[in-house]
């Protein structure tokens, strides 16, 4: 896979939080979320494979990972717009971070700040929990070079 693709999310979590603090109601928050999702490059069909698929999402979602030195980079896609937006929020938080930083990241607090904590309840089928789990799994897996 084209490695440059992994570097395409130019925002970090602070900028994301800033964006969302400006939103005054749910419509603006979700519009923002879906706009962010649009920034995510569409994964070509041949990369939407079952191996890359994240289990536990009602929509289909795929996640790829690569590592430069000690830093982890992720790339994902989904066929649902809101999940795509959620993936951008996660990439903004986790891309370029090392394993310790990823493990220490308080995602509950993050989504609380974004006004999206309702998305986090475990009964939701959006797969946010599943995505976070896979992100952490990759970050902690022994990467063979």
């Amino acid at each position: 896979m084209d490695q440059d693709l992994f570097l395409q999310i130019p925002l970090d979590s602070k900028q994301i939080i800033e964006l969302f603090t400006q939103a005054t109601n749910w419509q603006e928050r979700y519009r923002q979320l879906m706009l962010l999702g649009k920034q995510l490059p569409r994964l070509p069909q041949e990369q939407r494979t079952p191996q890359a698929q994240v289990q536990g999402c009602e929509s289909d979602a795929w996640l790829y990972h690569c590592q430069y030195n000690r830093q982890h980079y992720y790339l994902g896609d989904s066929d649902a717009r809101i999940v795509k937006g959620l993936i951008v929020l996660l990439l903004a938080a986790f891309n370029g971070k090392n394993t310790d930083e990823i493990n220490a990241f308080d995602h509950d607090d993050y989504f609380e700040h974004l006004g999206l904590s309702g998305q986090l309840s475990p009964s939701r089928t959006n797969g946010l929990h599943a995505l976070i789990k896979v992100i952490k799994y990759y970050a902690n897996a022994q990467i063979k070079s």
Binding site: E58, A80, N126
Partner: peptide, 21 residues
């Protein structure tokens, strides 16, 4: 061209309870 889940989440914001899946 819209995912049923997106529709469900956005309806839920408005307290509309329907099933999507």
């Amino acid at each position: 061209n819209e995912h049923h889940q997106d529709v469900g989440v956005l309806l839920d914001q408005q307290a509309i309870a329907i099933r999507c899946g």
